[in-house]
Write a protein that binds this DNA or RNA. Sequence first.
DNA 1: AGTCATTGCACCATCGATTGTGCAAAAAAG
DNA 2: CTTTTTTGCACAATCGATGGTGCAATGACT
Lengths: 352, 352
Amino acid sequence: MTDIGKKKATIYDLSMLSGASPSTVSAVLNGSWRKRRIKEATAQLIQKLANEHGYTANLQARGLRSSRSGLVGLLLPVHDNRYFSSMAQSFEAQVRSRGQCPLVVSACRDPEEERKVVETLISYSIDELFIAGATDPDGVHKVCEKAGLKHVNIDLPGTLAPSIISDNHEGARMLTQAIIERAQEDGPLSPDDLYLFGGRNDHASHERIRGFRDVKRALLGADPDVCIQPTGYSPAMTARAFEAFYEGHGKLPRAFFVNSSINLEGLMRFLALHPHETFADIIVGCYDYDPFGSFLPFPVFMIRQDSEAMITKGFAILDADRGPAITHLVRPTLVPPRTALIGPLDALKDIE
Amino acid sequence: MTDIGKKKATIYDLSMLSGASPSTVSAVLNGSWRKRRIKEATAQLIQKLANEHGYTANLQARGLRSSRSGLVGLLLPVHDNRYFSSMAQSFEAQVRSRGQCPLVVSACRDPEEERKVVETLISYSIDELFIAGATDPDGVHKVCEKAGLKHVNIDLPGTLAPSIISDNHEGARMLTQAIIERAQEDGPLSPDDLYLFGGRNDHASHERIRGFRDVKRALLGADPDVCIQPTGYSPAMTARAFEAFYEGHGKLPRAFFVNSSINLEGLMRFLALHPHETFADIIVGCYDYDPFGSFLPFPVFMIRQDSEAMITKGFAILDADRGPAITHLVRPTLVPPRTALIGPLDALKDIE
DNA sequence: AGTCATTGCACCATCGATTGTGCAAAAAAG
DNA sequence: CTTTTTTGCACAATCGATGGTGCAATGACT
């Protein structure tokens, strides 16, 4: 810290100061000095100088030379959502604990954007990439492949790279069963009392819909196609679907399964425009967990996907190198209404 | 795309292929070729080759040489929260639209971690840094200063760099007034019917508390100190404070101001352990907006901070270069209960 | 035809690290 | 007191791009 304001110190500066050669300084500072048989005393001198001058390696130079940057990327559809932001949080912690630098970017569910963003990341020579919820995982895969970048899919599977996803079918079964049972406490439930809103033409949605229909048919005997309303992932579209149902029936379905918390935001938009009575006794299942969503003024069953476990498994797969393009399922958990789970925030120290 | 699987093409490869020198190739590909008086035909040839081979510049090399990386950092306390994740979302969009690469990292409200993370970012030669909600903005400032890194504070002000923050005092006044008026609809409100929970020893909390007390004293005539319960920023601590109040009084305060959505999560934890009757008629104000928080089973007034405007202003200040260390206030908005605002997600295309 | 300006590009040092190689000096072995 | 081995380190090439400088070829002008 003796040289505040000056340019950052380099190994050449330390080389001058210490009398050692730049390569020796480099070796000392990157830890490879024992292998290079540098004297303990020399190493200590250099480390002392490095501390005094607040030396930190220029990681771009290091990355350029060694073609490893220490950057690990996480590609998200969006930040602004508890599922993905909590994934980002665990991701960061895990990357940081491995001594690497997390790089979280979002691509807005746009396949074109996904590829462009990944190209950019590759230009920074990132070492590994987690592709979460990509619209076109295989398109992204090809870009990575070409650059020799190790990667895994999270949340939405691809066919060309290992994928780690939530067990959507099982999760949807649990959730569907939970809302049916809860709804039946208020009286018999007929098949068209139970709807599904949200999701689109992706693997996760398919599996969730399949799980929903399996359980619904088993417990209620039927599932008319009209009860499945795939509205895409936008709150606006979802709100429109609720609105449409409401116009047709003068109420909402007694119970329904909402594909994600983003879709659940669509329900909020609907609610904002209607009086309490409209939804006095609905039962909702939402495939995502949100601490506030869990306390809405009607029962909301939620599914908490274990993003932390997915990230952990992702690293395991990347470390194992050259894993086959299989899909690993991670079991989610059912969260009953009015539940406040602890999350990554609780790891924070917040001394007063 | 003719060389799938091979290493990435460099300007040297294109130099060979085109017969031009590397510097010419470089000039063509980085756009400076007109200044360097390269023939149009040469430029086109090189660009064609670059496309065919899927050339993308190695940004580490470029950054090393030009000492500008094209990276812009955003330092957050945490990801897992609607306020910050939506800030990240706007930040990304704005950085991307300026042709740079966003780098969002969190430092868990730990001053030490904040400095370390910023050191790391500096090692990657980031060009600019947004410091959002730093526990120790001035400590971070010094680190930036030393490296000659341009930066602004967002959300929590420092004394050494320009800061852009929410007008916490005014926001708190609006919020306090709103909950008082709403509570008075149910009957007269005495000073100890109105509490404030959350926040700690930072500028934002101080201002909010000041705004709260101003309005409360003006409208209710007094504000006993016991009504201010600064619990820090953790949900667990906040839950404990509610629990303590409840044990003492057998109920929650009729109305209360919660310092942030993270603290509001603490309320959820409390609620999970108590029956509905406990909070049948509470009125809540929360200094943060969350779409689900707005629809809880009691009136929740919220403050929406305009993170998008803050980011925009941040760029304006950085672009203006060498701004003085003043604090700019951005006016937040009061959000009445049961309101679903549109957010950054609505910018997404989600064609079905 | 001779001078001068312009065009078009190649050359080369440089950014800050990493790493293979080589060679003295010191230590151990004979 | 040699010879061999080990220790300790310096040298120099390299990663991929940038940008100042210099120089030949071409065109303009007297």
